[in-house]
């Protein structure tokens, strides 16, 4: 209740120069690919390395002063690519991706710290893109937890159904699972429908 009032007063009396836009979601939903697309489009530089190995992003990646323009409007923001949130991190999964056991154990420890860091950032972001893999079942406890925490803090949310270029993509299942939120479907990899996402970001924040 207190947090909500604080946010309401901050919005009424203090206009922020820079918005902190967080990119959240489970591992391997394409968060870094999306962050790279946005960053490349508005700053000319990518942000991080995307990989098929889960938990490739293990610390929060930041890109400052990204001036996003759409529909005749412009917002200045700090773009934050978050480590993927999951309830489990098993080093054996990294070994299956060809990483040696010692390195897999180190990576696993770093990944658990990344998840904790991403959760702590839920209190500090101003708006969030929650990224889904459109080929996966969207109704998971990780997604329910991320959305529930953001909603409790009154943080604007856009659901981003990513990977729509894949044959088995079902982006509408995400909208059906969480119909109360702002929604768009994209392929960050193929740069499809990015303009709709930019428009929704500008409108939301």
């Amino acid at each position: 209740m207190f947090k909500k009032l604080k946010r309401l007063f901050a919005n009424l009396f203090g206009k922020k120069d820079e918005i902190k836009l967080g990119i959240y979601g489970p591992p391997n939903t394409g968060k870094t690919t999306l962050a790279n697309r946005i960053s490349e489009e508005f700053t000319g530089e990518e942000m991080g390395t995307a990989s098929e190995v889960p938990h490739e992003t293990r610390v929060v990646q930041k890109k400052e002063k990204v001036r996003l323009q759409s529909n005749g409007k412009e917002i200045s923001m700090n773009l934050l690519d978050m480590p993927g949130i999951s309830t489990k991190v098993d080093y054996k999964e990294f070994v299956e991706h060809g990483i040696n056991e010692d390195e897999a154990k180190v990576r696993s420890k770093e990944a658990t710290k990344g998840v904790v860091e991403a959760i702590k950032w839920l209190d500090k972001v101003d708006a969030v893109l929650v990224v889904f893999d459109s080929t996966e079942d969207p109704y998971t406890q990780v997604n329910v937890t991320i959305l529930g925490n953001l909603e409790a803090k009154d943080i604007p949310i856009i659901l981003v159904a990513n990977k729509t270029d894949l044959d088995d993509a079902e982006p509408e299942s995400i909208k059906d699972a969480f119909p109360q939120y702002n929604f768009t479907k994209i392929s960050a990899k193929e740069k499809e429908n990015m303009e709709d996402l930019y428009k929704k970001v500008v409108e939301s924040v």
């Binding site: 949130i85 098993d90 658990t112 937890t145 409790a152």
Partner: peptide
């Protein structure tokens, strides 16, 4: 609630090791 679920995830990540991969 959502906040408690986030704390459950945080706690399980903090206690993750080779024998306990999380919940």
């Amino acid at each position: 609630n959502a906040e408690e679920k986030a704390q459950l995830i945080e706690k399980s990540m903090e206690e993750c090791d080779e024998d306990f991969p999380g919940v």
